[in-house]
Design a protein around this nucleic acid. Structure first.
Lengths: 239, 239
DNA sequence: CGTAGGCTTGATTGAACTCAACAAGTGTGG
DNA sequence: CCACACTTGTTGAGTTCAATCAAGCCTACG
């Protein structure tokens, strides 16, 4: 399943056999987590990074009043905390949004890569920078887009990102999270998310039901969201 | 003025003389920009990165209806687009929020660093990862904090970040941007920012006037904002 | 078959937006 | 030197989008 990650890297750059071997060599084990499990808690010392093999993982931050904001959703093939390699500890927690399996990459071995394989190092750096670009786009959503646009934008983003790793079809994808978790991504209340989903359905744009996103009018949805995938830094071939 | 940047790096890590020389060697020129100037436009091909020497620079993204969201504010000593080195083009624009001077670092020379100086490369990578951490904290503000908390949080964040580069005093700092630009940072309208600033003033917490942030009750402000500087990844000594 | 978690809907409230007017400060040109 | 435009900040009145409060509905499952 590390193939997913490699395929994604190779969409944007050449990865040599030596680099592939080095990358594969960083992984020390594979772990399965049930939905709802916090995989890494904010502030812990880290000596590994988490690659998503199956399922969805969220990065979230808690507030004192018990609210939380999910700041990023990771799909299979994503490193959920490669940035933890340089940061040493995380400012957020990692949550299994669905049952998932992960592979853990030892920081010591990632460090060896940075000592010996400059090109692969730049590729890894690039990948954390794309994560940051996604954070920026979420800031735009949270700061400036209406509730319905935010939801539409997220559905569009995940469609593209899941498509890259063959986890989406033309007309939708599996995304088995609750409306409450969706609300935590979108900076809304669960009640309002429910109403927004109803509106998207009634407008004939998209349905979110039974853990699946089903597009009814993808061009219309993209228009509503003002979705432009440039911030995902994918090769035009990949889109 | 590149000293500001080096000082900041050295707060967190050792930088050898060789590394310092290599870093200094990346800079090809210095440019002054008037307030309001867009320094780098979204999508342009880049062959240099921008280090802020003096003034404030914002990263922003435009929406079709003419609104914009500022996703990050850079202070002296910050690289405003070091991530552009790996991304090759930016998904956002850079704006001079105040008159400012910048130094430009050639991507070709940054690349040489990644080929020959692994430790310095990790330091640069780290610095883009801290930017991403700041993005996450802004997502929390935009998604979950009230208008007054958002403003308070921003004032606290900038106090710490400016303090690191000796651009803040204990009781405040210069921050000569308009309420309209503040609104673009906070995901609010200018009118509402005005009311929020009044409330902060009337509560005796902080004043924002004549291009200056003046604290009246910093502990109270931090309490209101639930400000925890952990996400800035500063050495405890620096705080 | 009872209970819990997730979903749905209605009624009401409230935080932030919109619209509008005006004040203060700055720069410019007649 | 003053008239004027222009930007920035301020305040009031009314509106709207999303939150809150509350109730009821599935359906999965122990």
């Amino acid at each position: 399943m590390i193939e997913c990650h490699l395929r994604k890297l190779r969409l944007r750059d050449e990865i040599s056999a030596e680099e592939e071997a080095a990358l594969r060599g960083t992984f020390i084990d594979t772990v399965a987590h049930p939905a709802g499990r916090t995989i890494v808690r904010s502030g812990e010392d880290l000596n590994f990074s988490t690659l998503v093999l199956e399922g969805f993982i969220g990065r979230y931050k808690d507030l004192k009043n018990g609210q939380r904001q999910i700041t990023h959703v990771h799909v299979p093939g994503d490193f959920a905390d490669l940035h933890g390699f340089t940061l040493k500890r995380l400012d957020h927690s990692l949550l299994a949004l669905t049952p998932c399996t992960i592979a853990r990459a030892a920081h010591a071995r990632l460090r060896e890569i940075t000592e010996t394989l400059p090109h692969l190092t730049r590729v890894m750096w690039f990948s954390t920078n794309v994560d940051a670009a996604i954070h920026r786009e979420w800031e735009v959503s949270l700061g400036r887009r209406s509730a319905i646009q935010r939801a539409a934008h997220l559905f569009c983003e995940l469609h593209v990102r899941l498509g890259v790793v063959n986890h989406a079809e033309a007309d939708g994808y599996r995304f088995p999270i609750s409306q409450a978790e969706l609300a935590e991504c979108l900076g809304l209340t669960p009640v309002h998310v429910n109403r927004v989903l109803r509106e998207l359905r009634e407008r004939g744009l998209v349905e979110f039901r039974n853990g699946r996103v089903s597009f009814r009018d993808l061009p219309g949805l993209k228009r509503l969201a003002e979705f432009d995938p440039g911030y995902l830094y994918l090769d035009p071939r990949a889109l």
